[in-house]
Simulated scan of single mutants.
Amino acid sequence: MIDFAGFSLLGILFASLIAFALAIEFGRYLGRRARSAGGEHVSTLEGAVLGLLALMIGFTFAMSLSRHEARREAVLSEANSIVSAAMLARLLPEPRNIEALTLLSDYTGIRLSLKAQFLTPDSLRAAVERSNVIQEKLWRLGIGLADTDNAMVPTGLFIQSLGQVFDNQTSRVAALRSHVPDIVLFGLYGIAVTAIGLLGYGSGVRPYQPRLPAYLVGSLIALVMLLIHDLDRPGSGFIHVSQLPMEEAAEAIAEQLGRPR
């Protein structure tokens, strides 16, 4: 099965426009051949299929938008958990507090790298592996402090906050990997090609019916589909998830360490 995520957005747009143009011309050719049979019911059929296409577009758009919002919420949750862990790290005894803050600063830098415009599965996997290394160091640091003095309240709270940081990484990675299923996109394109082909058929059946309205509708549908693909891609395109909460978290930790912003 074709993986839509493996194609560029411009490539998908051009392929959609070409497919819709071919559907219009093929439908128009069939309509001209069937012109003698009359086209009384073509308008009804066009309306029904276009209504089905509108329903399918709305359904697919809602799926892509919900995934986009999930990614935005994941960034906010992860940034909040990192800031909470950094605040609790300041309560740890020296020099463990500086060590924990340094590790959290490095960890936040890796999480910020996920805002790259071209986020590939390989780069995401590499970022997760680097994050896991720092997670292990933070966890060993917390466990070491707990073994030294298990009555320290800050240490227990710090370990608990690390669990939230680790859980939020899993949630964010899952959100980044979540896409509209390809079978849904195949269904959307199948209905779109059929609907636009019927527009071409109608323009061929009716005498003196120009192609322009069918091409305008096809172009608009292709642009809407491009928007759906853009929302569904966290690492490329024109619509991006704001990384401001993570940037502010990195600045806050740098300030606690006395580093320049």
Rank of each mutant, 00 (worst) to 15 (best):
Y189C: 02
A195K: 12
Q135D: 15
T170Y: 09
I110G: 01
V184Q: 06
S84K: 12
A195F: 13
I134Y: 06
A70C: 05
N80S: 13
I159A: 08
S81D: 11
Q135V: 13
F158Y: 14
A74C: 01
S66G: 07
E73K: 12
L176C: 02
I82T: 06
L198R: 03
A89F: 01
R140D: 15
R71E: 05
S123C: 01
V133L: 09
T148A: 14
R125L: 12
Y201R: 10
Q164H: 07
A62S: 15
I196S: 08
N132R: 05
I98T: 11
E136I: 10
I183Y: 03
G200M: 00
V173Y: 12
I143T: 14
L76Q: 09
P154M: 04
N80V: 10
L198N: 03
H68L: 14
R71I: 04
E73F: 10
A127P: 04
D147W: 07
S123N: 13
T170R: 11
L199I: 05
S178Y: 02
L176S: 01
A146S: 13
P121N: 06
N168C: 09
V133W: 04
G200F: 02
P154S: 06
V184Y: 03
R172I: 02
M87F: 15
G187L: 08
L119R: 02
R140H: 15
V133A: 07
L112D: 03
T170W: 04
F59D: 08
F158P: 08
Q117N: 10
A127D: 07
R140M: 15
G163E: 09
P121G: 05
L188T: 08
Y201G: 01
H68P: 06
I143M: 14
D122L: 12
I191T: 05
H68R: 13
N168Q: 14
D182A: 12
L185C: 11
L92W: 04
P93D: 06
A174H: 09
D167E: 14
V180W: 11
A116L: 10
G163T: 11
L157E: 13
E69I: 14
A126H: 01
Q160I: 03
D122N: 11
I183C: 05
G58A: 14
N132E: 04
A62I: 12
V165T: 10
Y107S: 11
T60N: 12
M63C: 02
G200L: 00
L124T: 08
V153R: 13
A175K: 02
L188K: 04
L138Q: 03
G144S: 00
Q160R: 13
V83M: 06
R140K: 15
V153N: 11
G197L: 10
H179L: 07
R72E: 15
S131E: 00
L138G: 00
V83F: 07
N150E: 08
L176G: 00
L114H: 01
V173M: 13
A116I: 05
Q164K: 10
K115N: 07
A86D: 06
